[in-house]
Amino acid sequence: MELLSLLSYGSEGWGDEILASIGVTISLALATLPFGLLLGFLLALGINSRESSLQISAKIFTTIFRGLPELLTLFIVYYGAQILGNFLFQTVFGTTIEINSFVAGMVALGFVFSAYASEVFLSAFKGISQGQYEGSAALGLSRFQTMRLVIIPQLIKLALPGLSNLWLILLKETSLVSVIGLADVVRITGVAARVEKEPFLFFSLACLIYLALTFLSSAGLEKIEKNARRGEVRS
């Protein structure tokens, strides 16, 4: 009973703080996603491009962000972006800017996400036959129209399983942001564990929260995937 009261709502227990921290974890992951997806898609286009300079640039990017530990990337962005941001803002606007841990986490995790997402998109591109492009060209569609109307709808379907996997990884990697001070699930449960001297209780709770999040995500993703495949003949 005593343990349960630690998890209650209000000033006695940690329930409300932990609930808020779940919100932080989810919003960080959700805020990273569109940014990472877009950048990943552009990187895939770059690697697929006939322009060799674009290919090389995109490959340098993915090599760097797939090779660095996420924790290190986070530190480099957190401190580096601050130094760089201050320098730029000082010279341009004469003021400074604060890169908070949320933004730093979003940028760092987004870079890593996009580096991996570009691979997923690349293999999805390979799954689209050349005939699709030729057919679009025959219909007189512009390159942009081809991409928007013909390629992307098929691409999404092909890339979804890989992207779902990356989403689950992203959700777990948000935990690293606790180290640079963002009040996410791991950080808040860690504070509670130290204050209440109940590390086992609170860290198990943290694990359970992540399990619930991954469970819900995979259930949702399965639905989306099913929806994306609804045009296919059932075998």
């Binding site: 919003s27 805020a31 996603l33 400074t96 800017i97 908070n100 949320f102 933004v103």
Partner: peptide
């Protein structure tokens, strides 16, 4: 829409903290 909002909040958070210096 939700994601947009989130991205927006993140972006404004950056702006606001930039402005708070004043």
């Amino acid at each position: 829409h939700f994601m947009k909002k989130l991205a927006l909040t993140a972006a404004t958070a950056l702006m606001v903290s930039g402005a708070a210096q004043a």
